[in-house]
Each structure stands twice: as C-alpha cells, then as structure tokens.
C-alpha cells in the first residue's frame, strides 16, 4: 500500500462517514424526501445506529487485519472511532435538544432512573477520553497506558448494544444481532490473546531447556 493510496482510501472513508449525516440534513430541509411522520425519532435512530455501526467497524479492524494480513487497515481505525464518537454525540444532542427540549429535570431523571439511558450515557462519557487521546502525540505520551485506556472501547460497545436491547419494545432480534457480532469480535480477541500467551510460554520453555 503506497502512501498516496492510503491517503485516498482514508479520504473515501471520511466521505462515507459523512453520508448518514448528509442524508439526515438533506431530508430535514426537504431534499430527496422527508424524515417521515416522526422526524425526531428518525434522526435519533439514524445517528444512534450509525454510531453503533461505526463502533463495531472500529472493533472489527484488528481481527480483519490479523486474518487477512492487510496491516494498513489499522490506519483507518482512528477515523472510524472518531466518526463513531461524533455520531453518538449527535445522537445524545438530538435526544437532549430536539426530543426533550433541554428539559433538565426530565433529562436528569432519565439519566439517573431509566437504565437504558443510564448505560447509553455512560457509553458516551467513556468515549470522551478516547476521543481526546486519539492524537499521535497523546499516543506517544501515554505509551502503554494508551493501549490500556483504549481497551475501554470493548466496554463501550457492550454498553451501546445493551442500550439498544433495553429500549426496544419487544422485538429484540436487531439488538441481539448486534450483540452476536460484538460477541464474535470480543471472542476473537480472547482466543487470539490465549494463543499468544501459549506461544510466549512455549518460547520461554524452549529458552530454558537446553536443546
């Protein structure tokens, strides 16, 4: 992968990330259709679902890279992660401003008392430090702790899927699909980690026992 091609792919990914927002914005102003009978819900769900999809894509980068050997994919992870953060943020803003009209009292009750909103809010809060430390400089400065900090993304993914599961009225098929994909992606890491542990152990054994 040449540097130029990678830059081109990155640009395409950024454009693709903007598409859902552009779709909502265009329809909000009547271009290419409307947002249906319940536009607030349409915007809320589009942003929320896009955020969750991007989060899952971010989590899928490492397994795909390891399976295919396409190591340059890792260069897209920050873009996807930041896009996920912005969509989740937009989702929360849509909820607080467009849906609840910034009624602080009911917002506080929701965050404190309604489990699906509590876990969703927690996921958003946990994404903030990851977004803030997403720069190269921060990565260099934090070193090992950066890796540890960014493992939070697994927890954020789980919280996001639980938020989805707890808000649906009864048809849980879609949130369960998300949970299944998440379980696969996390399961891959557990298997991969154990495999590496084993390899390390074998290497040490070889070193310790003379041939």
């Amino acid at each position: 992968m040449t540097r130029r091609n990678l830059a081109l792919i990155k640009a395409l990914v950024i454009v693709a990330c903007v598409v859902p927002f552009a779709w909502v914005a265009a329809r909000a102003f009547g271009y290419g259709g409307d947002l249906g009978a319940n536009p607030v819900q349409m915007v809320l769900h589009t942003f929320g679902k896009t955020g969750l999809n991007l989060l899952i894509l971010t989590l899928a980068i490492t397994p795909i890279r390891k399976q295919t050997g396409l190591n340059w994919l890792v260069a897209l992870r920050r873009t996807l992660g930041l896009a996920a953060f912005f969509y989740i943020l937009l989702h929360a803003i849509t909820y607080a401003v467009l849906d609840q009209g910034l009624a602080w009292q009911s917002l506080l009750v929701d965050v404190a008392m309604r489990p699906y909103i509590t876990v969703g809010f927690l996921a958003l809060v946990l994404m903030v430090p990851l977004a803030v430390t997403s720069t190269n400089a921060m990565q260099r400065r934090l070193k090992r702790r950066w890796v540890q900090l960014h493992r939070l993304v697994y927890l954020i993914g789980i919280l996001g899927a639980v938020h989805f599961l707890w808000l649906v009225k009864i048809d849980v098929s879609e949130p369960l699909l998300y949970m299944g994909v998440l379980a696969l992606l996390l399961g891959y890491r557990v298997v991969d980690w154990r495999r590496r542990q084993q390899r390390r152990l074998q290497a040490r054994q070889r070193r310790e026992s003379p041939a």
């Binding site: 319940n38 607030v40 819900q41 915007v43 467009l98 849906d99 009750v109 309604r114 707890w166």
Partner: peptide, 19 residues
C-alpha cells in the same frame, strides 16, 4: 417501567416541535 408517559411526541409536527 422503561420510559416516561408524562409527555408525548405529536406525529407530523416536524423536527423542531416540542413534546
């Protein structure tokens, strides 16, 4: 148990309408 019933969103009232 999972959401408030105190207010409602009016269908067709638009993106910037309040509950």
């Amino acid at each position: 148990p999972r959401w408030s019933q105190a207010t409602e969103r009016v269908l067709g009232a638009g993106l910037f309408s309040s509950r």
